[in-house]
Nucleic acid binder design. Structure first.
Lengths: 149, 149
DNA sequence: CCAAAATCGCACTGATTCAGTGCTGTTTAG
DNA sequence: CTAAACAGCACTGAATCAGTGCGATTTTGG
């Protein structure tokens, strides 16, 4: 549907909140969902997944919480998306090809494959040009960096 | 889910097939789904929607079919996506804002809004840089045009 | 005029995915 | 030892999507 899931959205919000903390700052899920209108349990579930993906570190116990595993400027939006909903594939053209063997055995190979692959790749690059630091400082920074377009 | 729907995928395949025809060439749904492993009825449904969106012209009757409404190089992938699944919104951050009034009444405005809006815009530009003609000639052309990235 | 081919329009069903929650266990500070 | 917080698993309801059914209308060609 060409849209990020709520999980990814919550993940980005939570990570941005973590990025606002000083280095290694630990933030509990409770604090995050007191700051934004987001469901606590879901955010917790998402942060758990981000922990598995090594994007955040977890700290258990009464004063526990989560902290960024790396510096905010080294965590890319693309990584977050990949961790929470897998690599974007844009289309299942590939599966069309697989349906009839290695090549679409009908008349042509799927005519869309190669250019859509390129689109997918460009989308990926776009997501990976934006880091958590960019998200953390509101005024959209990406536009300046891609002014050539 | 950051993925195009099957409808959009079929639409792009069908449009690419139409683009391979000489100008104004009329192609029936039957011909399209004999050329690719795609379900006839679904492709017909999609082409009907594309007709409503004025991207193709329909021709009824025994020798009827569809033809491109404009030149292939003027039909952008973004238009096709918009016609078949609406404009991509990436996130529903906006709805988060609306949930508590015009501004997220909790503590901050959604911290993600502005940068994600920029991402959305860039994605849109990406889709609109690619035309049907680009899809029709296999060797991916977009890469050459955005080599600067 | 008639039969075949094709689009048109609406609506339906099953499958998949997602959002959100329940429950229980484990860890740690005070 | 109690409370707060994370860990893990699995479940339910809702939304969206893929694909199809059915009948009507239009047009070509005999």
């Amino acid at each position: 549907m060409l849209q990020l899931t709520k999980r990814t959205e919550y993940g980005l919000i939570a990570l941005t909140h973590l990025a606002a903390r000083a280095e290694g700052g630990v933030v509990s899920v409770r604090e995050i969902c007191e700051a934004y209108p987001v469901p606590k349990r879901l955010v917790a579930e998402v942060l758990k997944d981000l922990c598995h993906a090594r994007l955040v570190d977890s700290h258990r116990g009464a004063t526990g919480g989560y902290s960024l595993a790396r510096a905010a400027e080294t965590i890319r939006v693309g990584e977050v998306v990949a961790a929470l909903e897998g690599h974007p594939s844009l289309t299942s053209c590939a599966s069309l090809g697989l349906a009839a063997g290695s090549t679409c055995g009908v008349e042509h190979v799927c005519p869309i494959r190669s250019p859509i692959e390129t689109l997918r790749h460009e989308l990926w690059r776009l997501l990976n040009r934006t880091t958590l630091r960019d998200l953390a400082q509101h005024p959209a920074p990406l536009a300046a960096r891609t002014a050539a377009l």
